[in-house]
Design a binder for these strands. Structure first.
Lengths: 325, 325
DNA sequence: ATGAAAGCGCTAACAA
DNA sequence: TTGTTAGCGCTTTCAT
């Protein structure tokens, strides 16, 4: 079932079929009708590969996740897919987590899409640079800028400062940060903002390294809370860590929000259902995904030729876990 | 940058480059080395469209979601993407939710992939049938079977019966189902299972229609709980509805687990963090996704030629929301 | 307004 | 073992 079959059936040349289907040139109305009838009768759909090859485009965008799990990424993908498909592009997803050769996978992906979104620390800067140099537009999400690539961020800094000030108001004196600022740009900014706000009140903010899941949060918190000089606040790099920390506190017989403040980041669904409710920072994930798709579209269509960087606002969501008095 | 450039650089024909890269035929070692060197120097990556066209395959699988939001689908996608990429296939995602022409979108997707997974009620059976007839293998997930397509299910029935019996043990006398059995096959099975188990104890299970989000659950539950003959159990079609129902109960001053039982389905993260913890049914989402990818691979490679149907086990997860005595 | 034909970049059959 | 060449299905000049 090819364009030749349609042309034969309609008694025209293949060029006329192509013109009719794409509207790229005028076709006499009666001819047009014959072609459309043939297309309908044969249920013809143009071969994607053929079109791609001739048009030298893929009609597809890629998105690279460090790890697809978690509500964070699902929301970003949702916004991205919706906006990309409005621009007539499919979305190819790639998770780099348990993969033997992430760099190879990302480079292969780059060879089959018109543009690429890369989230977080999935591949080294040089790889991003090489992709950009090869002419494929790239948008970075929650990842330090790379020359030539667009970048989209959420305002970690401002929210972190607000969070630090809020904790200070609650009288926090001995706070601890759970996360890995050295591994993650986001975590580094979050730590720095809270740190600075607390430092202005003469309070420090030491770091306890912790990976980004509930279980790691529970274990790290359990260790800290067992110490004689236990902290009175656990500032967590994301909600999963914080929810684990809340559990550890409960296990240790401490009242979260009274004996101990716990905060997260992301405002996942569980944050508002946990008791006490988790104080956290909400980010516009869906919008982030949609903006990434649009930024890519601008670069692909050539509407914009210079890289751009944008930072989206965040909201501090105060619930009971950071103190109830 | 094409295979011709590489061939010229290595001083060989393009066929030799192709053979070297694909290992499809022996190439003398010195020649091979020259080709590989040229490939490396030029950073050559074969054009995906060219390969697709020549090989008549896409090296891509599709997956169609009714709606990408929610932890349920993210997990399925995770398992699917991992397994598909192990088979050397990329994953193209498509959400049909807010889309003007879901059927057209799905059919277009079917034309650019080697196989397709379809979740839930996204497109009518006829469309699935047409895709299958066009020669593209299809795996159905949580959706009634269609001739020629593989199907994967979770064991709604068994878990629902277990849930119904558990509720009966708690002495439930006036249960209500929140969800839309007429719209969703899953919901219908869940309702039927709980219904039958309760009916065996002389208890009914009426339905209150409700869409699958928290807010709808909250509103539906609020209406029911305000009635003079309020139910003593709310059996919800998924966790989101149940979490909304818990909120409604709290708003109404009722103690969940004491005055009222509430149950969900899916075991999302929030289910274990809510207080009281939500009694629910856990499904192996990730495995479901991975199995779908493997089923597709079998059909694509021709390892298997007849459609197959499989049902995965589920676990009843009892927490406090269904009764604490 | 329409058709013939030249690519687009690759694979594989065929020759050498 | 290697090169030449004919497609794969489409878009788009270039003639007519």
């Amino acid at each position: 079932m090819t364009i030749y079959d349609v042309a034969a059936r309609a008694g025209v040349g293949i060029a006329t079929v192509s013109r009719t289907l794409r509207g790229s040139a005028p076709v006499a109305e009666p001819t047009r009708q014959r072609v459309l009838a043939a297309v309908a009768e044969l249920d013809f759909r143009p071969s994607h590969a053929g079109t791609s090859l001739a048009e030298r485009r893929h009609a597809a965008n890629g998105i690279v996740f460090p790890d697809l799990s978690g509500p964070y990424y699902a929301e970003v993908l949702l916004g991205y897919e919706e906006a990309a498909s409005q621009a007539g592009r499919s979305v190819i997803v790639l998770g780099t987590n348990g993969r033997p050769d992430p760099v190879g996978a990302v480079r292969d992906l780059a060879a089959r899409v018109d543009g690429l979104v890369v989230l977080g620390r999935t591949v080294p800067d040089e790889v991003i640079g090489a992709i950009v140099d090869s002419g494929v537009p790239v948008v970075l999400l929650a990842r330090p800028a790379v020359a030539g690539a667009d970048a989209l961020h959420t305002d970690n800094r401002r929210a972190a400062v607000a969070l630090g000030e809020h904790l200070a108001h609650h009288g926090v004196r001995h706070a601890r940060f759970l996360g890995s600022p050295e591994d993650s740009h986001d975590a580094a900014e979050r730590w720095a903002g809270v740190h600075d706000a607390l430092a202005a009140r003469g309070t420090g903010l030491q770091v306890t390294g912790c990976s980004y899941d509930e279980d790691a949060g529970r274990r790290a918190a359990a260790g800290l809370l067992a110490r004689a000089d236990r902290p009175d606040a656990l500032v967590c790099a994301n909600d999963e860590i914080a929810l684990g920390a809340i559990q550890a506190a409960e296990d240790a017989g401490l009242r979260v929000g009274v004996d101990l403040a716990v905060t997260g980041w992301d405002d996942v669904m569980a944050a508002r259902h946990s008791r006490p409710g988790l104080t956290t920072v909400r980010q516009p994930m869906r919008t982030l995904g949609a903006l990434a798709a649009r930024a890519l579209d601008d670069r692909i269509t050539g509407t914009r030729t210079t890289p751009r960087s944008e930072t989206l606002p965040t909201d501090l969501v105060v619930r009971a876990s950071c103190g109830t008095h």
